[in-house]
Amino acid sequence: MLQGNLAGVTVVQNGGDPSASARVIIRGAGTLNSEAPLYVVDGMPYYGGPLNPNDIASITVLKDAASAAIYGAQASSGVIVVTTKSGKNGAPRVTIDTYHGWQTAYRTPQALNAAEQAAAYNQAADNAGVGRPAAHDPVQNPWGQVTRTNWINEIFRTGSIYNLNATVSGATTGAGS
């Protein structure tokens, strides 16, 4: 949510794992606490996993030393203050947000078939000045020239996405009211 929205805040996704946490850098590189900012959720330091975006009411980023000073040395790399939505008096309310969808890969690479791959291995062996492997010789291994599995289709098959977010809010005042 912060990426590209605040000056002085850089968000870097390390690697291609979509479930991995992003690295947040405030005011450039620091040296304490692995350069990670301090997260404060509803007034308490937070060291847990990701937060549900549906529960967030506001986010404030403290970048300068003066505003982050109340948090001490932990705040040397900045502070991200998160305020979550709070319940209100009234009847209990249940909210359910859900979605389901499908993902397919776009512009998948084209793999060689078995005969083309054998030809590429044989050409590499010829270029290196070594003998051709028997596994890629059509006379010794005719079965090696037959494509049995299209691995691109197996790896990039259609995937299902499902997300469910349920919240309960509302409260009454007093035990005997």
Rank of each mutant, 00 (worst) to 15 (best):
A91C: 00
V146P: 13
H136L: 02
V139R: 13
R157Q: 00
T10L: 06
T31I: 05
I59H: 10
Q145E: 07
I70Q: 15
A125E: 07
I70A: 15
P92K: 02
P109G: 02
G170K: 14
A7Y: 12
A111T: 01
G15N: 15
L62I: 12
Q74N: 12
N163T: 11
W143G: 09
R157Y: 03
I152V: 11
S77N: 10
N165Q: 13
A105R: 04
N54P: 09
P53R: 13
A124V: 05
V12C: 00
T60S: 08
E154S: 12
T98R: 04
N5E: 08
G28H: 09
I96Y: 09
Q117A: 12
L112G: 13
A119V: 03
P92S: 04
P142A: 00
T108I: 02
M1I: 03
N54Q: 13
G129S: 05
T149D: 04
I161C: 11
Q117K: 13
Q110T: 05
G131E: 05
I59Y: 08
D126N: 01
G48L: 04
V82M: 08
E35F: 07
H100D: 06
N122A: 09
N150T: 08
P142C: 01
T31K: 09
Q3E: 08
V79P: 01
Y46V: 03
D17C: 00
D97G: 03
G87M: 07
N122D: 09
Q140S: 11
A69R: 08
I161F: 15
M1R: 09
A68K: 01
I155G: 00
S21H: 11
D126Y: 02
G4A: 00
T31C: 05
I59K: 06
N165H: 14
V82G: 10
I96L: 07
K63V: 02
G8R: 07
V24R: 11
N150C: 08
G49W: 10
P133F: 01
H136F: 07
S21R: 12
A20T: 09
A128H: 03
I26Q: 04
T83G: 06
P18S: 07
V41F: 08
P109T: 01
P37Y: 01
R107I: 00
P18F: 04
G16F: 13
Q74I: 02
A91K: 11
N14M: 06
N150H: 12
H100G: 10
A166C: 12
G4C: 01
N52R: 05
A175S: 15
D97C: 00
A105V: 02
A65T: 08
M1A: 11
G28E: 08
Q13I: 07
Q74W: 06
